[in-house]
Design a protein around this nucleic acid. Structure first.
Lengths: 232, 232
DNA sequence: CAGGTTCGAGAGCAGTGCTCTCGTTTCTCA
DNA sequence: TGAGAAACGAGAGCACTGCTCTCGAACCTG
């Protein structure tokens, strides 16, 4: 599990340095042109190296994209966690608003990265195992908030419908991460998908000329969802 | 505005026929490999024509994709409308469930098409004007349902938070299509983004190993949203 | 039936991901 | 310390892409 085999030799140093450089340049181009147009050759050109040399560091374009994917997951996760940490623990509603706002701000500032994470999967490739942990950072942070809020007595002000045994079994894996009653957990999942839906609709242009002031609308919607979650 | 200048000559017939053939083959390949990998040359090859000939019918790859986009919008819109039409007008809740279910079924059966519509925008291109009308078919159908339900007295069973003047102004364009009070309209928009969020999360693999039985989960969530909408 | 338009095919350009080879650099271990 | 192994950069090359241009044939119109 050692991600970085303690650089000892000059070669190790160079490798780490170059890997970082490629990643950085890839990131820059990703922001420019989006995942679909990201070109290994262009990255190599910018770095003044032969295109074939890049393959010493990333065995394929997809591997590069996967690395960028992980980076983006980590970054967005960090942004959300930081926003959460800046609010007093017991201000649950405020934490919710801070976290979702932070996610939106990040998405707005990193359009293509958001698309990479929550838009259509890029090539025909299944995201490898390395991506699942970083991918869950944001979700996990939100689940933690929901759990803490529930335990503090902030129960959904809104009736959640009873959950059948079938559905209960279906969400068992998530229930392990957030030990709250099923209806509350469903409310949480609902909130999460609303966030992603809202963000995707806005960023991908589906609200164009339908909603005029995205910021105002977003703020209102998140308050409404906070209401539904029973956060005070 | 005449989309098809009444085919009179043999040439006109051939043009329409070939355009259709290209579109159809494009559609087939889109379903196979996704929008990013869709290749004009491959389409031409399959149709046994020179790649340059395709450019007589579609000036660029993006134009082809745009045409497919419109087709997909139309198809999904039709599917949803049909599902709606099959339910008695006053069974508002059932209509909601039927429409959203139909959309999900279509999305599951047409993975790449869904990604094309609601995933990340494909190249760096802004969807041209021709796409806005077809794009709104599904949304419009849902808005109509909300309006009819409200007028029939099915008020949100759930308190909607008061809408500020700012937010009111922001959603004015949508309010024109669905003359219901602001809080109810917000509930509708919320429901719509929840649908898209839920679908995107499921189809793009973000619920993988988190939710086990997608169908059961979806059904429950849509019932919950119907509750929140106040549909009976 | 003459003149203009539309069409299909082919060659060609610039770009892509990726592979292979070859000579050089660097590391490791006896 | 020096020899063998491993890693590396560069270049050529393959098969593919979107797209353009040209040219002769087909067609349509007046």
């Amino acid at each position: 599990m050692e991600r970085r085999p303690a650089p000892r030799t000059a070669r190790d140093f160079a490798r780490i340095e170059l890997t970082r450089a490629i990643l950085a340049e890839g990131r820059r181009q990703l922001a420019d042109v989006g995942p679909g147009q990201l070109s290994l050759r262009a990255v190599a050109r910018e770095l003044q190296m032969a295109s074939s040399a890049v393959y010493r560091y990333f065995p394929s374009r997809d591997h590069l994209i996967t690395a960028l994917l992980i980076e983006a997951y980590d970054e967005s996760g960090l942004v959300v966690q930081d926003a959460d940490a800046a609010v007093p623990r017991v201000r649950y509603r405020k934490r919710w608003l801070a976290m979702t706002s932070a996610l939106r701000d990040w998405a707005l500032a990193n359009h293509h990265e958001y698309a990479l994470l929550y838009g259509s999967p890029v090539p025909g490739y299944a995201a490898p195992e390395d991506t699942v942990a970083p991918a869950q950072r944001v979700t996990l942070a939100l689940l933690t908030l929901f759990t803490e809020a529930y335990e503090a007595g902030e129960r959904a002000g809104i009736p959640g419908r009873p959950v059948s045994r079938k559905v209960h079994a279906s969400i068992a894996p998530i229930a392990e991460l957030a030990p709250v009653p099923d209806p509350a957990l469903i409310r949480g999942l609902l909130a999460w998908s609303t966030v992603i839906g809202q963000l995707s609709l806005e960023l991908f242009g589906h609200l164009h000329k339908g909603v005029l002031d995205y910021q105002a609308h977003w703020d209102h919607v998140m308050e409404q969802v906070a209401d539904d979650l029973g956060l005070q």
